[in-house]
Simulated scan of single mutants.
Amino acid sequence: MIDPFANNHQSMQIGELVIENQEDKIIIYGDINLALNDTGYEQAKQLHELSSKILSAFESKSLYSNDKAKSKEKDDQSGEIIDNPFL
């Protein structure tokens, strides 16, 4: 199980559903079929545990209001204006 918003290198899979951890977001993609059997029950429990951990992270750390945390997809521009060397 991942530790939500703790790092940029954890991931996990439930069925064909992939969950990637980042410091400022959780990325979830793929699909899952929850059949009415033992496997479906176990997968549903994992989804429930994961969503509970994610909600707890929001509630306890207030990460949703922290704009200092950045992911690997952050803007790579410094915001500094420099002279154009081609002019």
Rank of each mutant, 00 (worst) to 15 (best):
M1P: 02
M1W: 13
M1F: 11
M1R: 09
I2E: 00
P4T: 06
N7A: 15
N7Y: 07
N8F: 00
N8R: 04
H9Y: 05
H9M: 10
H9G: 12
H9S: 10
S11E: 03
M12R: 14
I14R: 00
I14N: 01
G15T: 02
E16T: 09
L17M: 09
L17Y: 01
V18K: 04
V18F: 14
I19C: 00
I19E: 00
N21K: 07
N21W: 02
N21S: 15
Q22K: 12
Q22S: 05
E23N: 10
K25S: 11
I26Q: 01
I27A: 11
I28G: 02
I28W: 01
G30T: 11
G30D: 06
D31R: 11
D31Y: 05
I32H: 04
L34S: 03
A35V: 12
A35E: 14
L36H: 08
N37T: 05
D38V: 07
T39S: 12
E42S: 13
E42P: 00
Q43A: 11
Q43G: 09
A44K: 09
A44I: 06
K45V: 06
L47K: 04
H48K: 10
H48Q: 08
E49F: 07
E49Y: 13
S52M: 11
I54C: 04
I54T: 06
S56K: 05
S56Q: 14
S56A: 06
A57K: 02
A57W: 01
F58E: 03
E59P: 01
S60I: 08
S62H: 08
L63G: 02
L63H: 03
S65P: 03
N66K: 09
N66M: 04
D67M: 10
D67V: 12
K68V: 01
S71D: 08
K72C: 05
K74P: 15
G79L: 10
E80A: 04
I81H: 15
I81Q: 11
D83W: 15
P85T: 08
L87H: 12
L87D: 13
